[in-house]
Nucleic acid binder design. Structure first.
Length: 377
DNA sequence: ATGTTC
């Protein structure tokens, strides 16, 4: 054979009901041939990304690949239990009150930064902004409780509304990857080297900053509604962390993969479907200590508009079959992030149940999904 | 994904 040794284990967690795009499998296989790759795991939401697939976890022993994490280092989901009550929903009034979230936040970031032991930095003007793409902040009701003990152990009550925030490190992570790639391209870094240490320092900073960002987003969102909340979880799905798998110390690259060793995880579907609050059954090393991070895209962004514009008005796309409202003044995003562009979250969840990876704790139903009020074609 | 497209 060739000179490069391709001994990586490749696994895809997907039943026959779960359609996985061929291009995503191809990207998974290609990524598995990177020097030093030991394990490439496709999660049930695996879909094609920019060269490397999304919904995947990659394990190496001594080689670090920053490009696998991508630009949004630290991207993740935060979930807050709010002081808003299910019995006092004022959906349309709240929609009107949710303004100003796209502009720079004018509050004091110091207390939020302190929580993560961060000092002020040059990207702080972006703190509290949701960003674009698949990012959102969504007010939800508790739809069903599937595991009463775990639900109450988490301090949750059915009568409270929840706020789910999906965002990341904004321009900070982008700048880190950009600077890195300018020098090292897609080459691996060796553990212990100066450059690996430098990347990890910046990466760890971006993870903490993204966590702060989600906290400020939640604060702004809830302040606009005259209320507040308690953080239930904050789970990052784009990261590079040390991990021991089957007794071997190495590095776990998560690209759209939620950790299964940090407690509760929330796995959203599209804005038109339920989100699942789950508890990992075990930190399953055979599956890269990871879970799906969402439903996964079914359609490319570039083809969503063509498939939808003759079937739905823009107005229709601001409502969902579950009775929720979507705040999105960016027309392209309205199409790109339409529920139809995503796979069925129920299948993704079912695959993880069949693999004995999760226990479902509760399902959450969207009430208001905030994307952006910035008007764009 | 991105103070987004050199």
């Amino acid at each position: 054979m060739g000179t490069s040794e391709t001994s990586a284990i490749i696994r895809v967690i997907a039943s026959e009901k779960n359609w996985i795009e061929g291009a995503a499998l191809q990207q998974l296989n290609t990524t598995a041939t990177l020097p030093g790759m030991k394990m490439a795991i496709g999660l049930p939401d695996l879909h094609p990304g920019k060269g490397t697939p999304v919904g995947a976890a990659f394990f190496t022993l001594t080689t670090l690949y920053p490009f696998l994490i991508g630009n949004d280092i630290g991207c993740g989901m935060g979930l807050w239990q709010t002081d808003l009550k299910h019995t006092k929903i004022k959906r349309d009034r709240w929609v009107k009150k949710l303004t100003g979230l796209d502009a720079p936040w004018n509050g004091d970031p110091a207390p939020f930064l302190d929580e993560e032991r961060l000092t002020p930095g040059e990207w702080d003007p972006a703190l509290g902004t949701i960003g674009g793409g698949n990012h959102f902040a969504e007010l939800q009701t508790v739809n069903t409780i599937e595991n009463d003990a775990l639900f109450h152990k988490a301090g949750l009550s059915k009568g409270a509304l929840m706020l789910l925030v999906h965002s990341g490190s904004r321009g900070l992570g982008e700048s880190i990857l950009r600077r890195h790639v300018a020098v090292y391209k897609n080459n691996g870094l060796e553990e212990g080297s100066e450059e690996a240490a430098a990347y990890l320092r910046q990466h760890d900073h971006a993870l903490a900053w993204a966590r702060v960002n989600r906290a400020v987003i939640a604060h702004r969102f809830l302040s606009a509604l005259g209320t507040r909340g308690n953080r239930i979880l904050d789970i990052c799905h784009n990261s590079l962390t040390p991990q021991t798998i089957q007794g071997q110390a190495g590095w776990l690259h998560r690209k759209g993969a939620a950790p299964s060793d940090q407690g509760l995880v929330v796995i959203p579907g599209s804005r038109g479907s339920l989100s699942y609050l789950v508890f990992p059954t075990a930190p399953n090393e055979m599956h890269g200590v990871s879970l799906a991070h969402g439903a996964g895209r079914k359609w490319k962004r570039s083809e969503s508009k063509g498939r939808l514009q003759n079937r739905y008005t823009l107005e229709a796309l601001t409502q969902t079959a579950l009775g929720s409202r979507v705040i999105c003044k960016n027309k392209a995003l309205l199409y790109e992030e339409a529920p139809q562009a995503y796979k069925n979250i129920d299948v993704v969840i079912q695959d993880m149940l069949e693999a004995d990876l999760i226990t479902v704790v509760a399902t959450l139903k969207p009430l208001i999904t905030y994307k952006t009020r910035e008007v764009q074609a």
